[in-house]
Design a protein around this nucleic acid. Structure first.
Lengths: 365, 365
DNA sequence: CTTAGATACTAAACCGGTTTGATGACGCTC
DNA sequence: GAGCGTCATCAAACCGGTTTAGTATCTAAG
């Protein structure tokens, strides 16, 4: 069987490459399934059967094939395989976030790492896009979907009137919402129970004796902000506490400080404030301190996220910790099983953890 | 001239397509180049020529093709194209980082966002892997390279005895080091001048009157830590200042606090400390404050990174800001031009910016 | 001694693009 | 009008896998 590989062509491209062509192995070009088949003295089909664990291969042939694979260091070409199977074994994650806000967010890196730990054992890869605005975002999804680069995508930071769930069903691509479910409801969602973190915070403060608690929530228009605000109202109601209207902020330190001043300027300022993230909480502590208040003696502060810095400041921040890594891992597994035609089963996420440190204390009497 | 396109073979393929031909669109399956060709009444080759801007297509044919593409909403399949061209139009980024450390690092998200802004206009995608240890890391690179998923990779967090540059040349895959160059020198590197940030910090402190300055550097074994420590010594020497041996820490808050105590425990403690990142600097401020020192009156502190929180704490942190976003964008462009056979030209990165806030002041006399 | 059914294996088609060598039409010169 | 170069076009090969339909061999049943 002749296995000559020289392509006939002589274009500019070919000549550029041709310089390193002769050596063949060890050089640039990798072995193909044909090379393995030739070495093992079987057909390409048999090699394919072996690596895909299909029946109908004798033990001897299987052994020869495996030896040949090992000897050549062959690995199937992902693109060729994807072309045949119409499955790219790749998932997509598109983040729409102003780049400067990206680094404030402890969620993103952790979640990506979690996805990876879930994907790697399954042989899947993750392609990532970060886009600045809605228009680019739509294009990114359309491109990923239409050029067949991904089998499914994660949807994060869903907005209340988000067009993406509809777009995904229109493009016929499987998707998984990361966070509270979208009210449309056609796309499955996987998120921790936002309520429980808020409830834990409220009950902690209430048990310390607080009765008048403020809330700085996240940017309006996001599903998770709405969900958490609702949870907040519910928790207050359940605890029989009066409600101070939550102040919206956009997750940045500056906004957190401003919101804090707004709350402390009230005729009757709260004795404790719960923030939608740690960054705003820390900015809030600084803001309160600058007004001559002491934390936690004059004002108790609760954050959300448990960023590494929460433990490094004075006072150390009482906060709500989510196991984002596990969340990402489970989300990855869920989306894979979704794209592989399996059903989506709502897996159990680890519950949030309430970390009590020194930024909360009983209110002054 | 006959323009009928039916291929001669009455194969299963032709008949399968024939059945679903009339409605065709709307179902799950996307249009192919063949559909476009049929609709435009040209051959697949002509369509290919049109979308790749190759000469030899009449204006009429080009117009018909473009109309057909538009009408079908066709987009070339990335995998098929990659198979033919042997170029996946995809780059890889592997981060080896304990997941819990990932979220402390402002570099990662910003850099990824920067890469994206550079890659998107070129039609490239980014596949990401986060791995926990060295063994997994090697496997990740080998897999990416051998299954042809990526055309090139970024190497970050290079260690002094890092095996990756050698591995990359062995695998024959283009790579770009992000950060100071590796001493081996075969793989191109792109990084900001670490020295200049350190020098700016030293000269700022010196002009305030400090003469006895400590340094908390990053984890040992990393090329960028070494580079920065060298720069540190050089800057002190240039300024004619005596050197306190730098204390190594691992970029976490706990390590930063511990290193701070070590420096302050010296017989003659420094009047100012420069940290390798903001997280350690902030932990350092807290540590110093807990010892009864006031910042900046008793101790000046300089950070590195300018994380969003640097501005939200008391006192606001004087620090060194790098334009990581632009760095990522330029790195992306450089790696693309590298993989496309072009030369690597060391592009100019934006210089670091020294941000003076309130954590530095003249020393007590 | 057929005949039927497994089993091991392969040639060839196929996935959806790119690239090449060939062909036919056209305009130009001599 | 023969000869020649350009230009637009296309059929077919190719990239590296998967999958199907079919063949050869062997065994067990009728």
């Amino acid at each position: 069987m002749v296995r000559g590989q020289d392509k006939p062509g002589g274009s500019a491209d070919a000549s550029r490459r041709a310089t390193s062509r002769p050596p063949r192995r060890g050089g640039g070009s990798r072995p193909t399934i044909g090379d393995v088949a030739a070495l093992a003295q079987v057909s390409k089909a048999t090699v394919s059967f072996v690596i895909n664990d299909r029946p109908g291969v004798s033990p001897q042939a299987r052994r020869r094939v495996l030896e040949a694979i090992d000897q050549l260091g062959w690995q199937p070409n992902a693109g060729a395989r994807a072309l045949s199977t119409k499955r790219s074994q790749t998932l997509g994650l598109v983040m729409r976030r102003p780049p400067e806000l990206l680094s404030t967010d402890p969620f993103f890196p952790q979640f990506v790492a979690g996805i990876e730990t879930g994907l790697a054992p399954l042989g899947y890869a993750l392609v990532l896009q970060v886009v600045p605005d809605e228009e680019t975002e739509r294009q990114a999804y359309e491109r990923l979907a239409r050029d067949g680069r991904v089998d499914g995508v994660f949807l994060t930071d869903l907005r209340t009137d988000d067009p993406r769930p509809a777009l995904m069903t229109e493009l016929g691509i499987s998707a998984l919402i990361v966070g509270p479910p979208h009210h449309g409801g056609r796309v499955p969602a996987l998120g921790v129970d936002d309520g429980s973190g808020v409830r834990r915070a409220v009950s902690h403060l209430r048990s310390l004796g607080h009765r008048w608690i403020g809330h700085v929530c996240g940017a309006a228009g996001y599903v998770h902000t709405e969900a958490r605000c609702d949870a907040w109202r519910g928790a207050l109601a359940d605890a029989g506490l009066p409600e101070i209207p939550p102040v919206a902020a956009d997750f940045t330190g500056a906004a957190g400080a401003q919101a804090t001043h707004r709350l402390l300027d009230l005729d009757r300022p709260p004795t404790a404030i719960v923030y939608a993230n740690d960054l705003m909480a820390i900015a809030g502590i600084t803001a309160a301190t600058s007004r001559g208040l002491r934390v936690p003696e004059d004002l108790s502060v609760v954050g959300f996220d448990d960023i590494p810095l929460a433990d490094c400041i004075a006072p150390p921040l009482t906060t709500v910790r989510q196991d984002v890594l596990t969340w990402g891992r489970i989300a990855a597994q869920a989306l894979v099983s979704l794209t592989e035609g399996g059903k989506f089963q709502a897996a159990e996420l680890p519950p949030v953890e309430f970390v009590v440190r020194a930024s909360t204390a009983p209110p002054r009497t």
